[in-house]
Design a protein around this nucleic acid. Structure first.
Length: 548
RNA sequence: GCGCCUGUAGCUCAGCUGGACAGAGCAGCGGCCUUCUAAGCCGCAAGUCGGGGGUUCGAAUCCUCCCGGGCGCACCA
């Protein structure tokens, strides 16, 4: 990465001049105006106040001493910006490194000895997954890919409640549906789950078990609870696999109770003076830890609230040895996050262990198709219907395209009808076009490989070619900051820009030309673009078709 | 009322840890296919970055107030 190199050179020079500053703190920008070079630093503007010099004079002093080998130009502009123009050889080296590596992210080690656990979706098995869950599924899955590319040890986990009131309601509703499908006059419970999915499962069970369970008793209740849970989890897994998401672990809340971890946590919290009793309930002293107000851990009925097992769950994660636990939660859980932090802080966990990424809701631009879809499905648009209508690639792309903390307005019309204008195809098409060129080229063997030794990349002198090479160089940094900022959408912005540069290049120049040396160099450039775009699409979980 | 998120072109949104004249896609208008797939390219038009103050050499970006939208403020999960 050239940017890192510039940062290093600049830091070195500043140290030489007697400044001591933290590495990485140094600002290096990519100016929007090409006149200001490939990279620019405003460091002199920031540091000038510490010296006798004007910012302009300081910039000049800094620039003077910078080794010029890697740059065709180092200039001082405006009030004291230092602008760098990269030398062609530096850019070509970068492409050369890419072409001789097995992946654009080779520079990241396979393992950095850090681990992150990512929990997402975690919807309780009482209904089908919706578009909201779908966004989270995609975000979580992409983040997991990003971290694993960076060398983290990554584990994804789905946490679900498998007992308690919700499961009882699931059981009684399912029993009612089962009975109905056998012709019995049974009403579903008032607070039951009304969606059609339980009718299907009820019918299934009726077919499989006949009238064996028509009488409601403890055994029947247990039977439908088990079956309901099993079938719902199966459906959730099926839905997730439709968008290409698979979890490493499925974690049952009941296992925490079985192992006594919930009781243990409340005891530890008591010991650490983190709780008190009021009105027959046990409260967490959350306010002391920065939460807006104290919250109930154990109700006066003796039942734990949702918070307590979740604290126990995260202690469990901590004890499993992860360095960091990231949880994706919907906007309505913001308060819960504050309570969790308070609870974990009382337990003495490191403050940065628990990380929550709050994502805002998804709304569908409600026209035509969408409305039909929601009446068919009941109250909500399901993940399944969305993917069946639009396909995995489109859904994943759209769900990852916005920053998580923004509302996502899913443009259904654009996603569905406009195959021509649909942005997801734009990236895929760039990748496919390259595949097509390779098919036409006799320099490329069947595996898409070609000889690198005789590539003369210095033939790539056109501005479009230079731009492409520079852009390719930036990919690893994009992956890094997308992971750090929990911002998968950086990949989308970058990918659209890279594809755009490629399409422009493709339109203006021919790759396969009579000038063999030039053609070979351009094939090399195409290969680089394909490697980066392929890696990017793979992280996003979007396919790379050979033909479109 | 309080807290979190959000308000950028007609629409949907980018804008990297504040940086040098604000970007993209869609929609609109006008061009480009005997040559590697036109799912593409080129051009035109379009914005007081919600509004007012402040910090700074420099603000869409930081602080503050106001206005508008989403979510939350349970012994629900």
């Amino acid at each position: 990465m050239i940017k890192k190199e510039i940062r290093r050179v600049l830091t070195e020079r500043l140290v030489e001049l007697g400044f001591n500053l933290d590495e990485g703190e140094l600002g290096v920008e990519e100016p929007s105006n090409p006149e200001f070079g490939d990279f620019a630093s405003s460091i002199a503007l920031e540091l000038a106040s510490r010296t006798e010099d004007s910012s302009r004079a300081l910039a000049e002093r800094v620039a003077e001493g910078i080794c010029k080998d890697d740059f065709s130009r180092v200039t001082v502009a405006g009030p004291g910006f230092i602008n760098f123009d990269l030398s062609p050889s530096l850019i070509i080296d970068s492409l050369n490194r890419l072409l001789s590596s097995s992946s654009p992210l080779d520079e990241f080690p396979d393992s950095i000895g850090k681990s992150i656990q990512i929990e997402f979706v975690s919807s309780n098995p009482t209904g089908p997954l919706t578009v909201g869950h779908c966004r989270q599924a995609v975000l979580g899955d992409v983040l997991a890919s990003l971290y694993s590319r960076l060398g983290y040890d990554v584990e994804t986990e789905y946490y679900f409640n498998d007992e308690g009131r919700q499961m009882d309601i699931l059981a009684s509703t399912l029993w009612a549906r089962y009975s109905q499908s056998l012709g019995e006059e049974v009403e579903i419970p008032e607070d039951g789950y009304k969606g059609e999915y339980l009718i299907d499962i009820g019918e299934d069970l009726a077919e499989e078990y006949g009238d064996e369970y028509l009488t409601w008793n403890d055994d029947t209740a247990a039977f439908f609870k088990n079956k309901g849970l099993e079938r719902m989890i199966r459906r959730i897994k099926e839905d997730l696999s439709l968008v290409g998401v698979e979890f490493d672990n499925w974690f049952r809340e009941s296992s925490l109770h079985e192992k006594g971890e919930v009781d243990e946590v409340i005891n530890v919290l008591r010991e650490k003076d983190g709780t008190y009793e009021k009105d027959g309930a046990v409260w967490l002293k959350a306010e002391e830890e920065g939460a807006p107000q104290d919250v109930v851990l154990v109700k006066s009925s003796g039942e734990p609230t949702y918070l307590l097992p979740d604290i126990a769950y995260h202690l469990d994660k901590f004890e499993r040895g992860y360095d960091q636990a990231l949880v994706l939660l919907g906007a309505d859980h913001q308060r819960h996050v504050e309570n969790m932090k308070a609870g974990l802080s009382k337990l003495g966990l490191p403050p940065d262990f628990y990380q929550a990424l709050i994502n805002q809701f998804v709304s569908l631009s409600a026209e035509g198709e969408v409305k039909k879809m929601s009446t068919r499905e009941g109250e909500f648009v399901t993940l399944k219907s969305l993917v069946e209508d639009l396909g995995k690639d489109v859904v994943r792309y759209f769900m990852a395209a916005r920053k998580p903390e923004s509302h996502l307005e899913f443009d259904y019309e654009l996603a569905k009808e406009e195959s021509m204008d649909n942005p997801v195809y734009y990236l895929q098409y760039a990748h496919t076009r390259i595949a097509s060129i390779f098919r036409k080229s006799d320099r490329v063997n069947l595996e898409g490989k070609f000889e690198l030794e005789d590539l003369n990349l210095s033939r790539l002198g056109e501005p479009e070619e230079q731009e492409l090479m520079k852009k390719l160089d930036k990919f690893p940094e994009i992956v890094e900051i997308a992971a750090e900022d929990y911002a998968p959408h950086y990949l989308i912005s970058y990918g659209e820009k890279l594809s755009s540069l490629f399409h422009k290049f493709y339109n203006k120049y021919r790759v396969l030309t009579d000038d063999e040396e030039l053609g070979a160099a351009r094939l090399g450039l195409c290969k680089g673009v394909q490697m980066v775009l392929g890696e990017l699409l793979e992280i996003l979980g979007v396919s790379t078709p050979k033909e479109m």
